[in-house]
Design a protein around this nucleic acid. Structure first.
Length: 417
RNA sequence: CGGGCUGUCGUAUACCGGUAGUACGCGUGCUUUGGGAGCACGUAGACUGGGUUCAAUUCCCAGCAGCCCGACCA
């Protein structure tokens, strides 16, 4: 798209009410807008990044048999009362409101209950299982304190998958498959090298859960990493008994700060029992499906990527999540021929299916470069008098900063490799 | 939820119990044109409500909002 038509602008200063690097950079570069504490709007660039992240997650969930749905944000108290989780002391982040006729409803903070209730209408036999159902859904959580920019908000989209298996063994197999899928997601999102499957507390549902923790100084969690084995232990379960259980020795573990980018956990029959979801096995006996839940938040992932990959000049997006593949910049100096040449290159890239942001604005070179660095698109192409005289286009990788001159005839090939 | 701090043009800031200043942005003009240009003119502001005072953006109280530390975080 043409940058002159993009309605967002960059700014030199970060707003004074943001301290977190992720929010400062994303606001300065025009990716997001802060509506209020813990609530951020996605602007065109930000939405493109989120869509890319969602695409990666969707592909990996579909690859392991996930079926996408979209449940409601509005919650019927009835199903929550059955599981005992309508009470504010059961879920302390509930947002609740009332209907015009006085009935009480909730805004979903998670979706075990409503999905389990839906499955009751469709699952009767062992032949109907296993099933893996996921969605990208807005969650509302009335956090006492929103903080860390977009990392911890009161309203956010989460990809939550719920598995319904016939027995513990079938559940366990899927759980491991999903853990693998999660590692692929983080790999594709560019943070794979820094992200570790982490043994964590299971809370009230089970003995344990698995988190995916990205090592980052800005993280809120403390974990102990075993770099060779590529696993970690959350501080909350860092006890001698747990370490012995996992066959880990303290001397091999390194204490680091980390961001929880994903969490998967066994639910057992906690919800299938509460909502009386059963299936008939081969002998006709009624059995409760064994469930699991698997969550990852695209916005938190976006924030984590920004925390991980930025420099003094701005964001440095990994290729698969960047809002555009190429940032085309024309340096015209008032020369119409350069505008024509850059426009032609823009059309060429566009026709070749390369996503390109074309900075066609009538401003000085320095401002364009500063904006390009801030926005952080992986590859920058510059067309100017200099490059035309040299018979090519200047290509700069945002991450490395080094430039090369590429003949125009080869540019598509170079970009597509 | 405990503790602390802060609310001034769109953004970042300054000063002040008596006409609210600067920079960026934005608009117009001229110059400039490969790393956030220069000059000129212009545009735009004291969170809300009380109180004190001749006079409040400034002091006091309350509310609302924001940030930080802690607690919390299926």
């Amino acid at each position: 798209m043409r940058q002159s038509e993009l309605f967002t602008k960059t700014r030199k200063e970060a707003p004074k009410d943001e301290v977190a690097k992720n929010a400062q950079l994303l606001i300065r570069a025009g990716y997001i807008h802060k509506e209020m504490a813990g609530a951020y709007a996605l602007l065109p660039l930000g939405l493109r990044v989120i869509k890319n992240i969602e695409r990666i997650i969707r592909e990996e969930m579909n690859a392991i048999g996930g079926q996408e749905v979209s449940l409601t944000a509005l919650q019927n108290p009835e199903v929550w009362k059955k599981s005992g989780r309508w009470a504010d002391d059961a879920i302390d982040v509930w947002f609740k409101t009332v209907l015009k006729d006085g009935g009480e409803i909730g805004l979903g903070a998670t979706h075990e209950e409503p999905l389990t209730a839906i499955m009751k209408e469709h699952v009767y036999s062992y032949k109907d299982l296993p099933k893996y159902v996921y969605q990208f859904q807005t969650k509302f959580r009335n956090e006492l304190r929103a903080k860390s920019g977009i990392m911890r908000t009161r309203e956010f989209v989460m990809k939550d998958l719920y598995s319904f298996s016939r027995n513990e063994e079938e559940f366990r197999t899927f759980y491991e498959t999903c853990a693998e899928a999660y590692l692929k997601i983080f790999q594709r999102a560019g943070i794979g090298e820094h992200t570790f499957r982490t043994f964590a507390s299971g809370g009230s549902f089970s003995k344990y859960s698995d988190e995916f923790q990205t090592i980052c100084a800005a993280g809120e969690d403390t974990v102990y990493v075993h770099k060779e084995k590529r696993i970690a232990v959350n501080k909350e379960v860092y006890t001698d008994a747990v370490l012995a259980d996992l066959g880990l020795s303290k001397s091999d573990l390194e204490e680091v700060k980390a961001i929880e980018v994903g969490n998967i956990f066994p639910l057992g029959t906690r919800f299938s029992e509460a909502l009386n979801l059963t299936y008939a096995d081969e002998k006709g006996a009624h059995v409760y499906p064994v469930m699991g839940c698997y969550g990852v938040g695209p916005a938190r992932l976006m924030g984590t990527i920004v925390e991980m990959f930025s420099d003094k000049k701005g964001i440095v997006w990994p290729k698969e999540v960047a809002p555009f593949a190429v940032h085309l910049v024309s340096i015209t100096g008032g020369n119409a021929d350069i505008t024509t040449e850059a426009g032609r290159l823009y059309e060429l890239l566009h026709e070749s299916g390369i996503e390109v942001l074309y900075d066609d604005r009538d401003i000085r070179a320095g401002e364009k470069f500063a904006d390009a660095d801030l926005i952080g698109i992986p590859t920058r192409l510059v067309v100017s008098e200099k490059t035309i005289a040299a018979g090519g286009v200047e290509l700069t990788e945002r991450a490395q900063g080094s430039s090369t001159l590429v003949p125009e005839s080869e540019i598509i090939e170079v970009l597509q490799k």
